[in-house]
Write a protein that binds this DNA or RNA. Structure first.
Lengths: 330, 330
DNA sequence: CTGTTAGCGCCTTCAC
DNA sequence: GTGAAGGCGCTAACAG
């Protein structure tokens, strides 16, 4: 494979001059510029990004995306949007599935690869030791899930959208609304559940400890968690006539579980998820959800990690997307 | 961030000795070994993979996975399996969504990043120029879709599994079986369609040009393609009482389309996909499919790219997984 | 406008 | 068992 040296020789100039036309910085005469470009094309030379990263910033062009459940297509959509947003900077997004046991190992690997940033959507706490290492490696860190006193965060304001849902459910005769969640450990950090409680109370709806339904997510996948929990809950009766699910994948699983228990969605049970994943629209029935602007969210991550965003946090707007999985929607 | 030099100084040894304990190669006395390890731990030193790659192999530890439709969760599952298989080698898998217009650009980016391998699951042809560059950059190349005279390939033998399906459909009274495909350009390269034709003819089933149903995949997503095509086909009647779909995502879309036209699955139309994605099991009804061992497939890719597989090709076994989307399955 | 020099952090070869 | 020197391919700073 031909390198910068060879093309410098062929063009009869120094390596530095080649660098200049490659990077577009520094003045080079039109003539030599054209000559060099021609030779680059002829030889099929491709600049070496890893060497450049090494020399220029001592960091790679990689951005690590840490997710709790890689089978959840929401994260695929985020990944895809981040890839697009990162293209202009030549970023590479790499996705890591993290859990309680592998977080610190994964973060170690990310540091070893000198990522320029970490977007943490995971649902497990990270040790201070790891965070210290991240910081000292000068790696940007974004959290979206569990709070860690980090400098930058993307905040979702679920309140309004969730209130829309609950009012709609109430209008259509739902009396007992549950929230299907994951493992207890994450309750403290969760804004959805917090909003859920506040809204139910402010709307004179029934609320108790039993309104929050715990499951094994994220140690099991969301869809499986939803399925298993629904089978357990609805085996002999209909304890909740409406169900919020932590995300659409869980809602899909829950819907199947409810059905297998012989109940109908939405006639017996209304179901609503979060994330507005594409698949939600193809289910039978299509799943009502709370959606956000994924492009915007992804862009915020990328912009922050590349240093093109100075704000301390970004707030993403959420909206209710009614579909046939809840009563009263055609 | 502390580097190799500092820890060498702290330990009172040379940088080379530090490298020796880091890489585990070369003899070092137990004493200094322990001392160095202790200091590494204390300082929170993390070895620099990009510098190592640069010095050692002039290649990165990245493996590029090129896919036609990133929204298809089959590729997420492949990605996930490859990540697991690659962990022991410290590989990073990065996923690229390719299409007719961006292939060569993407390949250029992959070369610039000095990937160690490319696994091409895309459905668009790659220019000879690009292939030449890949080769001269000493990057391993695996193709699974479109054939390019490459040295290594993973082959799927669909025949037996598809025959199982077709016999089952026939048994259950299906008379007119269609194959929902993507764009015409890819027909030549496709083994599924080829097997489909052969089996239909050998089983005395109806076969004609009309048995192959063309759609916009992969320029549109699989699920959307399936949906749109089904709406078109089933708007006023039931031209096919059974439908193979190129993949499960397409099958999911098709099922929704068939339903919206007022027909029932499987009573009016039997549907079967390929890939055995997890979601297929949660649909209503669950989707029959032809599945493969994804772990095995992914491992073959990784092993080949890391040089741990000398075979010229690998054959992956396919099997029919009956589910309620076809008649006669409970 | 162009070239020379000195790194980046690591690995490898050779010498002790 | 250990160290010094040179090189990977590129960028940066300085000097013409």
């Amino acid at each position: 494979m031909v390198g910068r040296k060879e093309i410098a020789q062929l063009a009869g100039v120094s390596k530095t001059t080649v660098t200049r036309v490659l990077s577009g910085e520094g003045a080079v005469s039109k003539e030599t510029q054209e000559k060099i470009n021609r030779i680059i094309k002829e030889t099929g030379y491709t600049h070496n990004v890893i060497a450049r990263n090494m020399a220029k910033r001592r960091q790679s062009n990689m951005l690590a995306l840490l997710v709790p459940d890689i089978t959840n297509s929401y994260y695929t959509e985020i990944f895809s949007a981040m890839s697009n947003a990162g293209r202009e900077y030549g970023l590479i997004i790499s996705v890591y599935n993290i859990n309680q046991t592998n977080v610190d190992e994964v973060i170690g690997e990310v540091i070893a690869n000198r990522a320029m940033g970490i977007v943490n959507m995971g649902l497990v706490p990270i040790t201070h030791e790891s965070l210290r290492r991240v910081e000292s490696a000068n790696i940007k860190f974004v959290y979206t899930g569990i709070r860690n006193k980090e400098p930058f965060a993307v905040k979702m304001n679920y309140y309004t959208a969730m209130k829309d849902v609950i009012l709609r459910l109430k209008e259509n005769g739902c009396r007992s609304i549950g929230f299907m969640f994951g493992m207890k450990e994450n309750l403290l950090h969760d804004n959805k559940v917090k909003a859920f409680k506040e809204i139910l109370l402010s709307c004179d709806c029934k609320y108790s400890d039993k309104s929050i339904l715990l499951g094994k997510y994220p140690s099991k996948s969301a869809v499986l968690t939803g399925y298993l929990k629904a089978k357990e809950l609805y085996a002999d009766g209909i304890p909740y006539d409406a169900l919020f699910c932590l995300n659409d994948m869980m809602a899909i699983g829950a819907m199947r579980g409810v059905r297998e228990c012989g109940h109908r969605v939405p006639e017996d049970v209304s179901i609503v998820g979060f994330d507005n994943i594409v698949m939600g629209n193809y289910c039978e029935p299509p799943i009502a959800t709370i959606g956000y602007n994924i492009q915007e969210e992804a862009k915020a991550y990328v912009d922050y990690c590349t240093g093109n965003l100075s704000a301390e946090s970004v707030e993403v707007v959420c909206r209710f997307i009614p579909r046939a999985s809840i009563r009263g929607v055609q």
